[in-house]
Design a protein around this nucleic acid. Sequence first.
DNA 1: ACGGGCGGGACTGCCCGTTGGT
DNA 2: ACCAACGGGCAGTCCCGCCCGT
Lengths: 234, 234, 234, 234
Amino acid sequence: MRENSVVAPSGLPADHGEAVSPRSPDIRAARAAVGLRERKKQKTRDTIQREAMRLFQEQGYEATTIEQIAEAVEISPSTFFNYFPSKEDVVFNDPYDPLFISMFLARPSEESLGTAFRRTLVEELAAVFDRDREVILARARLMMGVPALRAHVWEELEHSRDLFCGVLAERTGRDPDDFDLRVTTMVLISALFAAEIEWVRHDGREDVLELVNRALDMVEAGARLDAIDTASPG
Amino acid sequence: MRENSVVAPSGLPADHGEAVSPRSPDIRAARAAVGLRERKKQKTRDTIQREAMRLFQEQGYEATTIEQIAEAVEISPSTFFNYFPSKEDVVFNDPYDPLFISMFLARPSEESLGTAFRRTLVEELAAVFDRDREVILARARLMMGVPALRAHVWEELEHSRDLFCGVLAERTGRDPDDFDLRVTTMVLISALFAAEIEWVRHDGREDVLELVNRALDMVEAGARLDAIDTASPG
Amino acid sequence: MRENSVVAPSGLPADHGEAVSPRSPDIRAARAAVGLRERKKQKTRDTIQREAMRLFQEQGYEATTIEQIAEAVEISPSTFFNYFPSKEDVVFNDPYDPLFISMFLARPSEESLGTAFRRTLVEELAAVFDRDREVILARARLMMGVPALRAHVWEELEHSRDLFCGVLAERTGRDPDDFDLRVTTMVLISALFAAEIEWVRHDGREDVLELVNRALDMVEAGARLDAIDTASPG
Amino acid sequence: MRENSVVAPSGLPADHGEAVSPRSPDIRAARAAVGLRERKKQKTRDTIQREAMRLFQEQGYEATTIEQIAEAVEISPSTFFNYFPSKEDVVFNDPYDPLFISMFLARPSEESLGTAFRRTLVEELAAVFDRDREVILARARLMMGVPALRAHVWEELEHSRDLFCGVLAERTGRDPDDFDLRVTTMVLISALFAAEIEWVRHDGREDVLELVNRALDMVEAGARLDAIDTASPG
DNA sequence: ACGGGCGGGACTGCCCGTTGGT
DNA sequence: ACCAACGGGCAGTCCCGCCCGT
C-alpha cells in the first residue's frame, strides 16, 4: 500500500504493438523488408512495456523494480536497458507525436495552418481515443501522479515543441530558432497539455475533445487574465 | 516514498508566507528568540547552495556528488538531506515566486489583473536582475542543460501555477479548480518560461525584459499559427 | 570446477582480528578509547575478510560474487563497498607493512641501515610465520594465481616502496624523490617479492626465511647476469 | 574465465616467434597467400590502437568506453574484443620485448651475458627512441597514471621475466626454474622498470638512456641501503 | 537535531557466450 | 563461415531513505 492507487486497473490491449490497426500493403511490405530481427526486437520492446505498465498499475511505479519487470518479461535486468534507457522511458514512449506530425503534413495545402492544426488534432484524438482511451488515461494518470514521471513531463513537452517547430519552420519558411515561432508553439502545446491535465484531474469523465477545443479557443482568442476576472465588467 | 496524489488542491502553503506577511508582536518576539537558530540554519542552507553551485559550474552537475558538496560545506552527507530533499532541489530553490506573489497582491486594486500582472512582472524582473543577473543566468543554464534538472522544470512550472492559481482564485472569486482559470494561468506561465528559455538559448545576450514583454504580447493577442505563417496574406 | 583449486582448504584463525597476539597495556588502552563503534566496524571488517577468503578458497575467486559474500556476512552488497573499495581489496589488506616499518624504526641507531633492514625482516618474518603461515600462504596463492589479483600486485609493491622510501628519506636525510633512493628501494622490495613468489611456486615447501636471505644476499652482492652464467669461468 | 594455474612454466610462447624465426618455403608461400588478410587484420588492429590512444589522451582512459572506440574505428564493440582481449590490452601491447630478445640472441657469443644485455638494451633503446619517443612516453604516462593500467604493470613484468628467463635458461644451461636465475632476472627487470618510472615522473625531461645505465650500475654494484645512507661514513 | 552506518535500487560499463543473418 | 548483434552477468557508483546513537 505504497503510493497512489490512482490508476484503476484497466485492460491493456492484449498485444498492443501488433494490434496497431489495419495497414496498407506498402507498410506490410516495408515491415517484411526490415527483417525478422527487427520484428523480434519490436516484440520484446512491446512486451516490456506491457508488463511494466501492468506491474506499475498493480503495485505502483516506485514499488516496481527493474528486476521484477525483467523477471516478468524473462529477460535480464541489463537487457531492459538495451531497450529503454531508463525506467521512466517505459512510460514515456509516445507513438502519437510522429503520427500527428505526418497527419498534419498531409492536410490539403489550401487550409490555413491554424485550421489544419485544429482539424488534425481533433481527428487524431478521435481516432486514437477510439482505440486506446484506457491505455492513454492510465499512462496520463501515472505521468501526473508519480513525481519521478511528472518531472519528465517537461522533456516530453520540449521534444514535442522541437518536433513541431521543425515542421512549422519548413512549412512557413521561418528560421527554426525564430522567437515568435518557438514561443507560439510552446504556448499551443502547453495549452493542449493543460487540457489533458484537467481531463485527468477529472478522472477522464469530461470529454477530452471538448476540453482541448476550449483550451485552443482560449489561446487563439488570447489568454488574458482580465478575461477570467469575474469582478471586471467584461 | 514521495509519491502523492494527482490532485493537489491549489492553495498557498501556509508556512511560505512567514517571511512576508505582518505579524503580531508576540510572534515577532518568539521569532527573535529562536532567530539565531533559524539564522544559523539559513546560513548553512545558503552555504550549501553556494558551494554546490560552485562545484556544479566547475565540474558539471552529474560529476558532482553529494559527498563532495558535503565535504566542501563541512557537513555530513546525511545532513545535506536535512536541508534539501534531493540534489536537484539545490538548484531549484527559487525565492522569486513568493516575492512575485506578494508584489502582485500589493498592486493598487483599481488596476486590472492583466495590467497588475504585467507591471509586477516587469518591475520584479528589473529589481531582481539588478542584483542577481549572473546567478540567475547560471542557474537557468544548468536547468536547461542538465537532463536531470530539465526534467524537474515541469514540477517548478506546476508549483508556480498552483501558487498563482490560488491567488487568482481568491482575487477573482473563482473556484481554484476552474478550467479557464487553470488553463489561462498555465499558458501565461509557459509563455514566461518560453521567453526565459530563449533568453538562455541566446546566452543572456538579449534583454530579458523585452523578450518577456514580447511573449506576453503574443499570448494576449492570441497565439495563432496563422500569425506566424509568412506565406499567408495576413 | 572453475579455476585454480591451487589453494588447499587451510584453517583460517577463527577470529583473526581479535587474536592479534598479546598487546602492551598502552595499545589496549588506545583500543578502548576508540570506542564501541570503531570496534564493531573492525569486527565486521574482519568477518567480511574471513568469509570472503573462505568462499574464495572453496569456489575460486572469480566464481564468488559480492552478493554471496554479503549474504555470508549478512550485510547488503552495498555495505560491502563501505568496507572495501573493491573485491580485490579484500585480499590485499596487508597489515604487515606498517608493522615492519615500525619495527625497523625501533632498531638501535648504531645499526647500519642494511643490518637493521635485514634483521627486522628476518625477525618479523619469523614472528609472523609462527602465527599466520597458512593464511599468508593462502593469500599469496590467490594473489599469484588469479589474474585480477596478480594485476594488483604492482600497486601493492608501489605502496610498499612509497612507504619505505618515506621512512628512508627521513632517516638518511635524502630527498624522497632521489633517484638512487627510489631505485634501490624498488629493487630491494622486488627481490623480497621474487623470493616470496618462488616460495609459493614451490608450494611453501621451502623455508621462506632462507629464500629471502638468499635473495637479499644476491641483491647486495650485485645482481649480475654473468654470475648465473654457468658456462662462464666465474 | 581467464584464471589459470600459478605455475606457468616459463618458456617462450610458441606462436610468438612467428615474425622472427626462419620458415620453410611452403609456409612462406602460405603466408604470402593469406598475407592480404593478415595485413588487413593488422591494419585494423593498428587503427584501433591509434584511435583508442587518441581518445584516452583526449578524455582520459576511464571516461573512454569501448563503444566510443568502436565507433571511432567503425567496428562493432564485439569486434573490438576480437582484436584485444580487454580494454587494458590496447595500451599494453609492447612490441619491443620480442625485439629485444632477438637482438640479445644475435649478440656475438664471445660477449659475456652482462655485456650483451647492457649493449642490447642501450642500442635497442636508442633505436626505438629515435622512432617512437612520444608514443612511448604517452603510453608510459597512461600506464603509470591510470590505476586500472598500473595494476596490470605487474603482469607485464612477469611476462618479460618469463620471456627472458626462458632465453637465459637456454643460453646458460640452467633450469628455467632455478631460483638464482629467476630472482636475478626479476631484479634486473625491476631496475629497468624503476628507471622508466623515474623517467616518466620527471616527465621525460631526463635522458632515459642515462637513467637506465645508472640503474643497471647500481644493481650490478649491489643495491645496498648503506650506500644511500648519507649519514654513514662510507 | 546532527552524524553515521546501513540498505537498496537505478544505472553504467566491461566482458563473454550464443545465435542468427549475410 | 564468419562476424555483428544480442542477451546476460557482475562489479561498481551514486542517490537517497531509515534508524540509531550522541
